[in-house]
């Protein structure tokens, strides 16, 4: 299982996820997003655009490392990984 940490900002739109220990089965980051979408319909379009690309001001980390593939989210994840989905600081 992969543990997922979401920015608190997202709980405003998906309150059903707040306070949960989020664990999903996935082999890559795209699979993590699909698993989140299954639990909270609509969240995938918050994180990615309609072509599946990560939105410009959203960052996903595996452990402490930013993912490399923002276009297809193909970075692999393994059991025990911690995936963090955060909003980028884009100034201000």
């Amino acid at each position: 299982m992969v543990q997922v940490n979401l920015t608190r900002h997202l709980f405003a739109f998906f309150p059903q996820l707040e306070g949960l220990t989020l664990e999903v089965e996935a082999i890559d980051v795209a699979g993590v997003v699909r698993a989140l979408e299954a639990r909270a319909p609509g969240i995938g379009f918050y994180l990615c655009d309609e072509r599946g690309r990560l939105r410009p001001h959203v960052n996903i980390f595996i452990g402490n490392s930013l993912i490399r593939d923002r276009r297809n989210l193909s970075d692999p994840v393994s059991a025990g990984d911690k995936v963090s989905i955060l909003q980028a600081l884009s100034g201000g």
Partner: peptide
């Protein structure tokens, strides 16, 4: 128009 999360 969410700054981070796109248009809804």
């Amino acid at each position: 128009g969410h700054g981070h999360w796109g248009a809804k």
